[in-house]
């Protein structure tokens, strides 16, 4: 028999798309052409530009200014071991870089070879990706590198004439985070029971309500429930309500056809198990009042790999689903209010 899982690795990945609005579009469209710009607002040139003056929140306007590509480091740090989210795969610096022509620094990456090369006052220069690879995102600048020629940037501080229409109005933002949760004692209890072919609940000694898929507490009484409150509940019951979901396609969606999730009021237990699948009939044939019984996976094929702290109450791959017993339906009216 497979063990219950102690840790769950969960990758939260999603391709977000950000619309930029006028100011950021102007910046991005210029950047993709190799030109960094700022905006003159509140008496200073802010680069990269913000839509609003950070001091007053007034609109920044469109007094665009060419800045860089060279600039001066004001403060810095060093990243000896980059993470998967950092833009470089070798040790690098982060720095505040005041670009020529700008009054405020921008935060960016400095590829200086070694920590000892970093210093306040160092002159650096933007190193761009190949033009074809530029998408107008801040990381079109691969990094700033020590400037070969420390003299001022040509054209910095001069006005920038923005085009009528910007080429770039959106940016991709891929979220890629890894979480490692661990099974709580309550989750482990549930998963072990499933592996043994048992459905368990916890009965509150105060209000005597039973919750199937133990939660370690009574949400009515706010008291802790532990192993001593565990009871076995029947693996038969009556469908008390259901939902038929027409799947919307999204990143990570696993369903393509309408699917059903049922609440089942377990026989004699005064307790409901939720989010269950019904086998052998189509979604449109599911009715409130049907008698059903649990279909367990064979003991040697059961798995609870998917039972984490969020999915308590789900049967994992230990419960295949629930099938009709063939008994006549109960009157729906007696069950409809028992979604829970």
């Amino acid at each position: 028999m497979a063990d219950t899982v102690q840790e769950f690795v969960f990758n939260l990945t999603f391709p977000f798309t950000r619309t930029l609005g006028s100011t950021l579009s102007t910046f991005s469209s210029a950047l993709a052409q190799g030109q960094i710009i700022g905006v003159r607002t509140g008496g200073r040139v802010i680069a990269p530009p913000l839509e609003y003056d950070p001091d007053s929140a007034a609109d920044s306007g469109t007094d665009w200014v060419r800045v860089g590509p060279k600039g001066t480091v004001s403060t810095w740090t060093w990243v000896p071991e980059p993470t998967n989210l950092h833009p470089l795969d070798h040790a690098f610096g982060f720095a505040f870089i005041t670009l020529d022509g700008a009054d405020t620094p921008m935060l960016h990456v400095v590829d200086a070879g070694s920590e000892s090369a970093m210093a306040a006052g160092m002159r650096v220069e933007a190193s761009f990706k190949a033009p074809a690879d530029c998408v107008g995102r801040i990381d079109d600048i691969i990094a700033f590198v020590p400037a070969a020629d420390p003299s001022p940037s040509e054209g910095a501080g001069e006005p920038f004439a923005a085009p009528e229409e910007n080429d770039i109005t959106e940016m991709d933002a891929y979220c890629d985070l890894t979480y490692v949760d661990n099974a709580s004692p309550t989750t482990t209890m549930w998963a072990k029971a499933l592996m043994e072919g048992r459905i368990i609940g916890q009965k509150c000694p105060q209000c005597e309500r039973t919750i199937v898929g133990p939660r370690g507490m009574c949400s009515v009484c706010a008291i802790e429930l532990d192993e001593s409150h565990v009871i076995d509940v029947p693996d038969r019951g009556v469908v008390s309500n259901f939902t038929i979901v027409t799947p919307v396609q999204y990143h990570g969606q696993t369903e393509t056809e309408p699917f059903v999730r049922c609440s089942i009021l377990l026989d004699g237990a005064n307790a409901v198990i939720a989010q269950q699948e019904i086998l052998g009939i189509t979604a449109s044939e599911v009715r409130v009042g049907m008698h059903v019984e649990c279909v367990w996976a064979p003991a040697n094929e059961r798995s609870v790999q998917d039972i984490d702290n969020r999915s308590r109450g789900s049967g994992g791959d230990a419960i295949i689903g629930w099938r009709l017993t063939g008994e006549p339906d109960e009157p729906a009216e007696n069950y409809l209010n028992r979604m829970m």
Partner: peptide
């Protein structure tokens, strides 16, 4: 989300930039 997140700008690095400014 436009200027810092795409660079993987992390909370430790931002603190370190502030610490360096304090030292300087």
């Amino acid at each position: 989300p436009y200027y810092l997140t795409p660079l993987g700008t992390d909370t430790w690095s931002l603190a370190a930039l502030q610490a360096r400014a304090l030292l300087d």
